[in-house]
């Protein structure tokens, strides 16, 4: 494999920046959607950016030790690496060096970083939050992994650019959502949980465990977690689009797709209360898993 250093360097810098910008808009969209549903006006356009800048500009910054700071670096680094490995129109050099499995496991690195940092804060609310977040991960990853297995079976590859190419060759009929609707549905539900949105929102739980992982986060620490939220929305939507919606032919359709994908859970989240932890696990292991298994068998039968 020949390394085109120049191109790679551009990807390395441009992709995270793009992801951050798109993510900021997604956050804004989510907040506006919420405001609209609650018959409010909602925040101004630049609000997500102002929040982050304000947090970074705080005069005092509380640190609970080196691990607290390193973990934020790991979190940001993992997120940036994740964006780089996503296949988006025009940028897929790095996507060829890994595959869907690599990406799924890379997605856990920032989570792990955050978990370590939160634990280093020595606040039990944070630890409980992390315990719940990991529990939620155990819950939503089961249906999600089944859908990934189904996609790998259907396309015969785990390479993300390949998957996009296969879908785009066949047009709309080739889309994963058309070929395997059950799996697409299961993945959509797990995505809701992956983003930590109601009814699967168990680990922030402000009224219960004081925002869990964010309890002791202040200033730029909290700001970095806001950045992480932008990246997370972007990553999950791009992954879903890649597996089920034919990826992006060009940036216009690509952006439409990913915003639609994010809009669905962001809308749903406002009309649900929260489940209890064990209820989340039970529900996710029951319905989406069953749907995904049926979908997997359908795929395997073909």
């Amino acid at each position: 494999m020949d390394f085109d250093w120049q191109h790679m360097l551009i990807e390395l810098l441009v992709m995270p920046t793009l992801a951050f910008v798109v993510g900021l808009v997604m956050v804004l969209m989510a907040r506006r959607l919420r405001a609209r549903i609650e018959r409010r006006v909602g925040p101004p356009f630049w609000q997500p950016l102002w929040d982050i800048l304000k947090l970074y500009s705080k005069r005092t910054q509380v640190s609970h030790g080196h691990m607290h700071e390193i973990s934020i670096i790991v979190l940001l680094g993992g997120m940036i690496a994740m964006e780089v490995f996503l296949p988006v129109p025009g940028f897929d050099t790095f996507a060829h060096h890994g595959d869907a499995l690599t990406l799924i496991y890379l997605m856990m690195v920032p989570t792990l970083g955050m978990a370590l940092g939160v634990s280093a804060c020595a606040n039990p609310n944070g630890s409980i939050g992390i315990a719940r977040a990991l529990t939620a991960m155990l819950a939503y990853d089961v249906p999600f992994i089944i859908t990934v297995a189904g996609a790998a079976m259907l396309y015969g590859t785990t390479s993300l650019p390949e998957i996009i190419a296969i879908q785009q060759q066949q047009g709309l009929e080739g889309w994963g959502a058309v070929q395997m609707p059950l799996l697409a549905l299961a993945a959509l539900i797990s995505m809701q949980a992956m983003l930590g949105k109601e009814p699967f929102e168990i680990y922030v739980a402000p009224a219960e465990i004081a925002t869990g992982p964010m309890t002791e986060m202040s200033g730029k620490f909290l700001g970095s977690m806001f950045i992480m939220q932008c990246f997370q929305l972007y990553t999950v939507s791009v992954l879903y689009t890649t597996l089920f919606l034919g990826g992006g032919e060009n940036w216009a359709t690509f952006l439409i797709k990913i915003f639609v994908v994010v809009a669905i859970p962001m809308t749903l989240t406002n009309i649900f209360p929260r489940y209890k932890t064990e209820a989340v696990v039970a529900w996710l292991w029951k319905w989406p898993t069953a749907i995904a298994l049926v979908g997997l068998f359908v795929v395997m039968m073909r």
Partner: peptide, 22 residues
């Protein structure tokens, strides 16, 4: 905070812990 006056218009949000609040 809610729909009548909606303080989010001016960028205000409730927060939970003192670490996060202004």
């Amino acid at each position: 905070m809610t729909s009548r006056f909606d303080l989010e218009r001016v960028g205000m949000q409730p927060m939970v812990t003192p670490r996060q609040a202004d």
